[in-house]
Design a protein around this nucleic acid. Structure first.
Lengths: 141, 141
DNA sequence: TTCACTGCAAAACGTTTGCAAACAG
DNA sequence: CTGTTTGCAAACGTTTTGCAGTGAA
């Protein structure tokens, strides 16, 4: 799925244009398995490039997302979080500490088919989120 | 009318109260199988009670949600939508027209167990959302 | 030069909150 | 009378946008 470039016709063959700032933003998202919010990405990016602006971080995240280099995880109406893992996967969020982790559930092909049947939709993607207690928070104190 | 849950701890005594405005808001949410946004609820509520304010609609929705009478469906960072169906169920959202429908997927007990195992979380609830084309949008015009 | 990208500030959007007045018990 | 709820407006957090200036092909 190389679905880049929605408007800027000129550019070569759908190759992502990684400017310095976009590279910084990408590095931040990829440099850990946390799922930073845009604000957190901004703070981290600023340490590498003090002049970068909030808008550029947002623009970059949007660009990287549509370029398929990061994934946005929008959960509730709070701040979106950004995920370096771009393949299909599921999320678990801790109801106590807010930790968000990726995991992979086998059998999603079957799942998506069952969901499509039950909803009568033509399936494009399926999103599965588990809410519960993360290993740390479930541990007895 | 249903018995309300008073276990909400915070307030000392006093039954949860369905005031006129809360009743109107509840009626709006329950009077269709659409999943209105807070703004849409506000618009509809105004027709029944022209003096009702935006803040009251929000406050009422929050109240009704925690009283277990409506369910909030927060999807992405857009506006939350409100669902009269309070039992566990899944959602399908149309990528073309935005239609949101409820459906029920059998086997979610097994699913939640598998997800808990894969994530090592202690499961509380699981949310499954299918993105695709609704029956209308998939149909040839 | 050209054209996309950056940075800034301000707008947009959905939601919450502070407060005085209205109201229910 | 006491405590809750309302309505208003203003504040809030997140994201987008308008626009002038920058910088790379």
């Amino acid at each position: 799925m190389r679905k880049l470039d929605k408007s800027a016709g000129k550019r070569g063959f759908g190759e992502p244009v990684l400017t310095r700032q976009r590279k910084v933003v990408l590095d931040v998202v990829q440099s850990g398995d946390t799922h930073p919010t845009a604000g957190e990405v901004f703070a981290a990016a600023r340490k590498m490039m003090p002049a970068i602006s909030f808008a550029t971080v947002y623009n970059s995240l949007r660009y990287l997302k549509q370029a398929g280099l990061v994934r946005e995880v929008a959960f509730g109406n709070g701040a979106s979080r950004y995920d370096r893992e771009t393949d299909r996967h599921d999320h678990a969020i801790c109801s106590e500490c807010g930790t968000l982790v990726d995991f992979d559930l086998p059998g999603t092909v079957e799942l998506i088919r069952a969901a499509a049947r039950a909803s009568r939709f033509k399936a494009e993607s399926i999103h599965l989120t588990l809410v519960g207690l993360c290993p740390q928070c479930r541990a007895p104190k």
